[in-house]
Amino acid sequence: MTITRWMISALFIMLLTLGAVSTAFSAERPIDIEAKSLILMEMDTGEVLIEENSDEAFPPASMTKMMTMLLLMEAIEAGDVNFEDEVTVSEKAASMGGSQIFLEEGETMIVRDLLKAIAVASGNDASVAVAEHLAGSEEDFVEMMNEKVDELGLTHTQFQNSNGLPADEHYASAHDLAVIARELMRHEGITSFTSIYEDYLRQGTDDEFWLVNTNRLVNSYEGMDGVKTGFTREAKYGLAASAKRGDARYIAVVMGADSPKERNRHITDALDYAFETFEVHPLIEKGRVIGAESVSKGMKETVPLRVKEPVSVLLKRGEGADDIEEQLLIDEEIEAPVVEGEPLGKLQLTKDEETVADVPVLAAEDVEKASLWHLFQRSLSRLSGLR
């Protein structure tokens, strides 16, 4: 791999985290903001529509658990963990205070129920049990959390535990929490947990436990399907919220509100503004092959190109997307070997000669490097006119 392609690979995670980088809007302040920090972000494009102190770090409280859920979902999708795996509760997990489902040392609970306990009831004990199941210890899991922070390019976040209980040097910004929420919501199965309003654990036993979502907006705001509340005396009231209507999904994060009522008002005002003002226009579905590009010195002469995530543009209501133009830009000559998923360039979307999105383009399949004998035979075939 050349130096240029290495640099592209290094930057790709950052670009994918930011999503389709739109220049159509600058963040506004169309709502009254009394909390310490707030951000409103569109899911597909990553476009920031409102922000207030969004890069300032504060204690995230239980919004920390979004990272715990994200790492769990990644492990499940990678096949390292199964929803039906049984987890044995440690003394440490059972000792957690604050919001909990009252796990007991030695008790077993399947991963599915522990995730439900985290997403719905914000169980501190369930978070530690999951952390220990994934990494062996919560300390090692925290290392995984902070490695993911670095991978996502987050610069105002550092974790010290898996659940958000108060700890020195445990902090996050609203922007970084929005990015984590966005990554979590890319896992399609997560909303079957985060959208639950009420449910039960240990149903039919003497230890039956009633779960009620700490995010009451799940039951009252149209389209709300996540993600995570947070509260400690130091952090005050926070919420990372996700709501979807039609093709549009928005992520809103508020930190440091003085009351649950104020927290919910900030979130609903921000989401109302988004749904009333903007429209999401889907252009390319997830994983679609959008073309092919020549490959030098490969067993195949071309490599198909695809987008990893859905491609959309965000426009003001009433603006059409019919005049959106697409241009495929490859960073340099592609030389084998090529690895499936390797970033090779970008798809640039323009409207009225302005760039509205730059979307990472990936190799859709492997292309192995050809042997000298194979290249020699190919050259002979061309010279003889057989191909």
Rank of each mutant, 00 (worst) to 15 (best):
D323I: 08
L328Y: 01
F278T: 07
R306T: 04
L315M: 13
A336I: 13
G320L: 04
K297G: 11
T277G: 05
R317D: 05
I330N: 02
I330T: 07
V303S: 08
Q327I: 08
S312T: 13
T277Y: 02
L283R: 02
V289S: 11
G287R: 05
T350Q: 13
P310L: 07
A270F: 00
Q327W: 01
A274D: 12
E326S: 13
E353W: 07
K346E: 14
K351Q: 15
P304C: 10
A336H: 06
V338Q: 01
Y273G: 09
E309R: 15
V289Y: 04
V289F: 04
V303K: 05
L344I: 11
E279Q: 13
E276A: 14
L344P: 12
A270L: 02
E276H: 03
L315N: 03
T302N: 12
K286V: 05
L271G: 04
V311N: 07
P282C: 10
L347T: 12
D331N: 11
L315S: 08
E340S: 11
P304L: 09
M299N: 14
E353C: 06
K316I: 01
G320I: 04
E319D: 15
K300G: 02
D269P: 09
E326D: 05
D272F: 01
L329M: 09
E326G: 00
V303N: 08
V307S: 12
L329E: 15
T268W: 00
G298R: 04
T350I: 03
P310I: 01
K286N: 10
A336K: 03
L271R: 03
L314D: 09
Q348T: 15
P343N: 04
E335S: 14
V311P: 04
E326I: 00
L314G: 07
D323V: 13
L347K: 05
K308M: 11
V307W: 05
A336V: 12
L344A: 06
E340K: 12
D272N: 15
T277E: 13
K308R: 14
V295A: 01
E333F: 00
P337W: 05
G291R: 03
R288P: 02
P343D: 03
V338P: 12
D352K: 12
P337C: 08
L344R: 06
L314W: 05
L329H: 09
E309Q: 10
V289H: 00
V313Y: 02
F275C: 05
